[in-house]
Write a protein that binds this DNA or RNA. Structure first.
Lengths: 357, 357
DNA sequence: TTGTACGCGTTATCAT
DNA sequence: ATGATAACGCGTACAA
């Protein structure tokens, strides 16, 4: 009820400040500030200060400190959504940064360009010390604004060219080429592909890997076998149906990310089609349950921990640096391909295909 | 090179402030501030201000604003890790809060009490406007500190009693009882359970549901069938092995969360045991791939979206409220049980069991 | 080592 | 509706 300044219970109880602590401890504010920041302090004063802090329930105010130091100890993190992959990167990265006293401000953009801009503005306004995101087109202006103010930016998972930022990617082309090459090794010649958005750098790279594998074995590229499945479940679901309804359906399919694989698997199940007898399948992105899926899904595994650790390293280097004059790096990490039971050798592979064309 | 105050390129280029904007626009700072906050402004001044902002590349400083208003528009979010469940809640919650101009400061504690405290201190120092977390024991003091300063706190997923906070949970007991009841309906009498940490409120509730189902059908509770699997993969893996090595192994198992189910499934696969012929299994927590797992995993599905939406609602109500005098609520949401193929009717169920005891 | 005093960028309170 | 000015809590020269 009462609005006393000395109210002990709940209520507007004004926060104790560094000044209050100084008064209570009988020292100057400067001394308290130095104590808080780990500078040497006379023994007796230190005890007084610690008691005062305890007694007053003083809590440091990082907001006020940020205003002076221009350091919020906060890092912007923006991804399309918290799929298994991005969630894993976020968890590991947040763990690493916590040990450096920093935390991630997490926001998703759902692949909506408008949201991307809003989020970037939010980060700029909140003066994040750095920004980690998947590359997104049409945001060059906003990114440049951040860079102009010496905010380090790290792209991962997807690139946007021409921006002076640090980058952490995986060898999308190499891994995709190996994955498709594996199918060819097994005798497959009609291989479908579910691609991500091709406006997207990573989407194009994975498709290129597919094309390279075909080309280097002298297999033709059939346009009808290339389905734009938009990175998502529905795309994978519909795309797989489209492939199966082809006059010459593929005997194997390469899916360029987990979501599309998921949709494709659902469609196969609906039609009671069995891997690998009715179709061989390789997925980009490995998730734990793929190992348990009946015969097991052969998949390209991204090195999540290495990705996060690399980003953390870059962040620490850039933040330790006074102005943004550290050189920008691009790290490209290798993927493993995990062979499981969703792919099988195709016997007498070309018999039907030869008569067809 | 030059440290000119007029440098245009990269570098220490001091941020334009509201004062600079006011000068350039020929108005007072108060006017600019009001413009930025959407208050009515004379037409001509508005144009001047907008031009000045554009010309100077002015970006609002949320840190300085926070110092005045005691509002950081930042919400602390702490969970043990970003498992599928928590990641989904985080994604949806962050989406909801973004529309209110707020973002989540995300930190994981990995079930380490020390980390829990560190994270809580971090949030307090950074003056988050609210806190969302899974309940964790032994942190009453830190939580009380936040509450004393009128920071709304919401617990979800796991409870800690005796704290004046808002709560959002699911009907753990009811759902578990139904899940185990389903197994009993199918004729199972020897039913194992992989439990989570029993120091944990939710862990105990799910186990209670198991016990209730047994009791109300007159089945004995066999202590050897109750395995503490610590919520995690290894626990589920080892726990399932322990159950199968029993002289009278269970014919069905109830696993109290996804991680343990995952471990259990892995063990079954290693031993080439098939669901549901060799064993029936029900999992608490549903994940998308359970639908695709060979026969499909019967699972209790938590209403992730409803959980997040409920939390968002509470947050908005509490934040709209001047001081922390809004009543605290506890919301308990229902779960669905998704019947799939991992459970089967046990024929002549008691024949062997009867001779045994 | 310690104390004093100023400034960081914004909002809020007054008059006008 | 606007202008002038006092805070907000902290860090840090500077002088002592």
């Amino acid at each position: 009820m009462s609005e006393d300044k000395t109210s002990i219970g709940r209520g507007k109880q004004r926060e104790a400040t560094i000044v209050d602590v100084a008064d209570a401890a009988g020292v100057a504010v400067g001394t308290v500030s130095r104590y808080l920041n780990g500078h040497p302090i006379r023994r007796g004063n230190r005890d007084q200060i610690e008691q005062a802090i305890e007694r007053l329930g003083y809590r440091r105010n990082a907001v006020a400190a940020a205003m002076k130091t221009d350091l919020t100890n906060t890092i912007g993190f923006m991804v399309p959504g918290l799929s298994e992959f991005h969630a894993a990167v976020l968890e590991r990265l947040s763990y690493k940064m916590r040990k450096a006293g920093k935390a991630l401000l997490t926001l998703c953009h759902n692949s909506d360009p408008r949201s991307v801009c809003d989020v970037l503005d939010f980060f700029a306004t909140h003066r994040v010390d750095a920004l980690v995101m998947d590359g997104q087109d049409d945001v060059g202006d906003r990114i440049k604004t951040l860079l102009d103010h010496d905010t380090p930016v790290v792209f991962y998972d997807n690139d946007v060219r021409g921006l002076p930022v640090d980058r952490v990617f995986v060898e999308n082309r190499v891994a995709s080429r190996r994955a498709v090459g594996h199918l060819i090794d097994l005798g497959h010649e009609r291989i479908g592909v579910l691609t991500g958005d091709l406006h997207n750098f990573t989407g194009r790279e994975r498709l290129e890997g597919y094309k390279m594998a075909l080309a280097e074995r002298g297999l033709p590229l059939r346009p009808s076998h290339v389905i734009d499945a938009h990175w998502n479940y529905d795309g994978g679901h519909n795309g797989m149906r489209a492939l199966l309804e082809l006059p010459e359906p593929p005997t194997a399919v390469f899916s360029c990310n987990y979501n599309m694989t998921h949709g494709a698997l659902a469609l196969l199940k609906e039609h009671r089609l069995k891997l690998p007898d009715d179709l061989s399948l390789v997925s980009f992105d490995d998730v734990p349950l793929f190992a348990l899926h009946d015969v097991g899904i052969t998949a390209v595994s991204q090195p999540v921990d290495k990705i996060a650790d690399t980003i953390a390293g870059i962040l620490q280097r850039q933040l330790a640096n006074p102005a943004g004059n550290a050189p920008h790096t691009t790290t490209t990490l290798q993927c493993d391909i995990i062979l499981r039971g969703s792919t099988r050798r195709l016997l007498t592979p070309a018999t039907l295909g030869a008569t067809g064309s």
